[in-house]
Computed example of a mutant assay.
Amino acid sequence: MSLDHYFTLGRSGLRVSRLALGAMTFGENWGWGAAEDTARAMFDRYLDAGGNVIDTADMYTEGASESMLGKFIQESGTRDRVVLSTKFTYNAEPGNPNAGGNGRKNIMRAVEGSLRRLRTDYIDLYLLHTWDRITPAEEVVRTFDDLVRAGKIRYAGLSDIPAWYAARAQTLAEAHGLTPLVNMQLEYSLAERNIEHEYVPLAQTLGLGITVWSPLAMGMLSGKYKASQQGGEGDGRLAKVTRAPGFERFTKRNWDIVAELEKVAKEAGHSMAAVALNWVATQPGVASVIIGATKLEQLEANLAALSFELSTELRARLDAVSAPEKPFPYYMFADIQQTRIHGGVAVGDKPAGYAAPVFVPKLEAREIKAR
């Protein structure tokens, strides 16, 4: 498997590379990140390696990320080759509630700003960045459909949303003949495996390809952090933010994962980061893994993640040490319960080669007539 081996994203014809270049680090407006010359070097190296997906958002480095990308793509003449993905949700005008969130007014505002900064007249993949807990799914999918019909975006998806919200949005799109969603962008790593309970089956059932953010758990799995009396120490930003709600990474469970990952990486003959990325990239439901870097050498190391295959034994060790707890109702779906449900008769996956049903979108009357 190499970087120029492409998967279609969800139930679509859009082909994406197995590793995506994350541009959240493009720009130094947040007090950390890559200067323009370094960002350009990483952009060029990623494309030279065969990658084609670049992920950003309107709020990354206060808009500098999109502006840099727009400049790089225009100067390199690679617009048709690049799958350009950006996101909206976060507020660009404090004090104005409609300058953020996922309502139609803000989506229309945000897309125009992104198009201007990216120096393009269309966005390949446009994502809702974070659930705002307010906007109905109906409003979001209808607006996405309007943007596709207007030619401003090609595909749409969701990031950091509850599974029920994604399921409702996709079902509404299918039922009403609107543009279907093709992507969910979610956190996933050896240290954060909770999407396996709901999101992966949802994606596989409803045709949503998963793109992964933070595959190294904010650097926790890169080998740069070591346990200390203060919980952890290292040469990265995680040490600064790990005490913030939702970003606690210096836990006993995670240090156990780091310790086993270090052993597995040594036996496999690859870096900890490459092994951790390889594990994520080859998990069910994953279409592409977003890799971010602030230095060219970091990017080079991450690009090596697809150059090898983990043995079954080594993968099993990583699976075991990182196995998430099964909350209700998933602990009820163990073999003993299944035996009672199916009467002791073996049931399971269909045999290899068994054709799965193909989804056919419902056609509106005018479309049927046209055909």
Rank of each mutant, 00 (worst) to 15 (best):
V345F: 08
R79S: 03
T89I: 01
F26T: 07
V358R: 12
V289F: 09
D235H: 08
F43R: 01
Y330Q: 12
R104C: 00
Y354N: 11
S114R: 07
Y330H: 06
G209S: 09
H176M: 07
D121L: 02
A110G: 08
F88W: 12
A49H: 02
V82P: 10
P245T: 08
S311R: 13
D349Y: 14
G113E: 10
K71P: 00
P361T: 07
D80F: 00
A175M: 02
E28Q: 15
A34H: 12
P201H: 14
I73V: 08
T8I: 08
L19D: 12
L47D: 12
A217H: 13
T294I: 05
I134C: 04
A334K: 10
P351F: 05
G207F: 03
K226N: 07
H197I: 01
E174A: 15
R119P: 01
L363H: 07
G209A: 09
G343E: 03
N278S: 12
Q298C: 08
A64S: 01
A239R: 14
G63F: 03
G285H: 05
I257P: 04
V111T: 09
L128V: 14
F43K: 00
F250R: 09
A320E: 09
F333W: 01
V53P: 08
W164N: 07
I54R: 05
I161R: 07
I368E: 10
T211V: 11
E262K: 12
P329E: 11
S214A: 15
G51W: 11
T89F: 02
E267G: 02
Q230E: 13
S322K: 00
T38C: 08
R109L: 14
Y122C: 13
E260P: 01
S228Y: 06
H129G: 03
V264K: 00
G95Q: 09
L186E: 14
E325I: 13
Y165F: 02
D121Y: 10
T205Q: 13
V141K: 08
R366I: 06
A99Y: 04
A23G: 05
A265H: 11
F72M: 01
L318W: 01
Y90N: 13
L19W: 11
E325V: 13
A23S: 11
R133N: 13
S288Y: 00
Y46V: 03
Q185N: 12
M1Y: 11
H342V: 05
Y60H: 12
R366N: 10
V83N: 09
E139S: 04
Y122A: 15
A244E: 14
L261P: 06
A92H: 06
E75C: 10
A167I: 10
G10C: 08
R81I: 05
K252A: 15
